[in-house]
Design a binder for these strands. Structure first.
Lengths: 112, 112
DNA sequence: ACGCTATACAACTGTATGGTTGTATCAATG
DNA sequence: CATTGATACAACCATACAGTTGTATAGCGT
């Protein structure tokens, strides 16, 4: 399994901030520019711009020119990469449960 | 939708470090103590202990006394909370696609 | 060309974080 | 009960990060 890979660091760290998660959510609609996003938060334009840059480096959003604006869109594949990693943990977990169940079963069998 | 809630901050931030993700993975087996975990990484015992504490605060692992050791186990519900949030983003994404598709369809209808 | 709007980026500040070493607690064992 | 092993915690350092302000670039409207 691969728990390393520089991008998981960036993806999860990027998601570890409530403002950035909210930007991801809003950017699903894919219609707002950076300034419009910034209006939703109690911080400067530059701060929001930095958050967007973090999300962009993590591959969670992309920016696309549209006139003088840059529209921010969430890049769903980035989210899916994170989901897949969590899914693999779940599989490992289920595997462990199965092994424990098997162990208990065979023990019972032996004790019959 | 709720993207806030203090725990998502902690959960995702905790997962944003490769060492901690590896600890989560190893702790699925649920047999190693802190010292045993620490042997796997090129850092001090105290550093690993801090990582475990971060994971514990995020609700991703629990520690259980076993003799003089404390066995670290991953708490799968913490992982599932993160998964569910990502799932909701996916749903929003699909909803957007559906709406776009509907828009295109009705546009075509109108142009018939 | 000029001004206005949206974005980008650099420099700075305070605080959080990852790492270290050293000391303290607690449980098993001789 | 003194020692050893496993864990916990505090103090400290270096670096990263979230926020700020200020300046620079790019595109639109007049």
């Amino acid at each position: 399994m691969q728990t390393t890979g520089p991008d998981f660091d960036r993806v999860f760290a990027a998601l570890g901030d409530a403002t950035r998660r909210d930007i991801v959510r809003r950017a699903i609609a894919g219609v707002e520019g950076v300034a419009e996003l910034a209006d939703h938060y109690p911080m400067s334009f530059a701060a929001v711009q930095k958050h967007v840059a973090v999300l962009e480096r993590a591959g969670l959003v992309t920016k696309q020119r549209s006139g003088r604006r840059k529209v921010v869109r969430t890049h769903v594949e980035g989210l899916r990469a994170a989901q897949r990693l969590l899914d693999r943990y779940e599989e490992l977990w289920r595997g462990r449960i199965d092994r424990m169940t098997a162990l208990i079963t065979t023990t019972k069998e032996r004790n019959k």
